[in-house]
Amino acid sequence: MSKRIDVKDLNVYYGKFLAVEDVSINIEAKSVTAFIGPSGCGKSTFLRTLNRMHEVIPGARVEGEVLLDGDNLYGQGVDPVTVRSQIGMVFQRPNPFPTMSIRDNVLAGVRLNNHKISKGEADALVERSLQGANLWNEVKDRLAKPGSGLSGGQQQRLCIARAIAVEPQVILMDEPCSALDPISTLAIEDLINDLKDQYTVVIVTHNMQQAARVSDRTAFFNIAGTGKPGKLIEVGDTHTIFSNPTQKATEDYVSGRFG
């Protein structure tokens, strides 16, 4: 249930503005890949091109190829809706649907496309997904309550449960812990560790310790200055990137010396 992603020579534009320039990267299946780098370096933008979510912003477009096990996401006749149902996403701020119960939130993705499932199947799926997100024990007695009544960390795990309920190939996480306290962050990090047994996980983070803790491979993005495009500087095993990077910019960033 997981596929690899290979990106070849990808440029991302907002209208005429080149936001991310010439990224080529291989993301292994069943591993955690972390994107690190300073604010505005294009790592979130790049992440969103991996499931075509950047297209939500008018004028956004890409050049190049993103291959999911060899299939180009930007090929002719590829529907972004299909892409997104295979490549799930967890956002920076927890965003369960406020008008739905916890149970309905988990089932939201499954019920799309008029997909009908029986109550028994739905119950099993809800339990499986919430257990997969380490949330079942905390919410099993209040599945009919609104998801917005949970704490921030619980909401974020609910969003992860919602994402894995549709059984995607890849899960993208855009700074999933930046709005959470340290204990909730720890819970999510443990969860990421469990998820990589089944899924390909890509995580954007501001927190270098977090990247070091959770990821197998790390990609460092940087930007030359305001108005310049973001670039992928270096990618490699997390241990190598943090202890013995080949690029000076990477070393300066991971050791806390900027510029």
């Binding site: 997104r84 649907f97 496309n113």
Partner: peptide, 22 residues
């Protein structure tokens, strides 16, 4: 909220499904 619209789209909702869901 953009957040909720994007949540629906990221689950693989079409535009109409996003409108119905969010």
């Amino acid at each position: 909220p953009k957040l909720h619209e994007e949540a629906a789209l990221a689950l693989g909702a079409t535009r109409w499904e996003m409108i119905r869901m969010a």
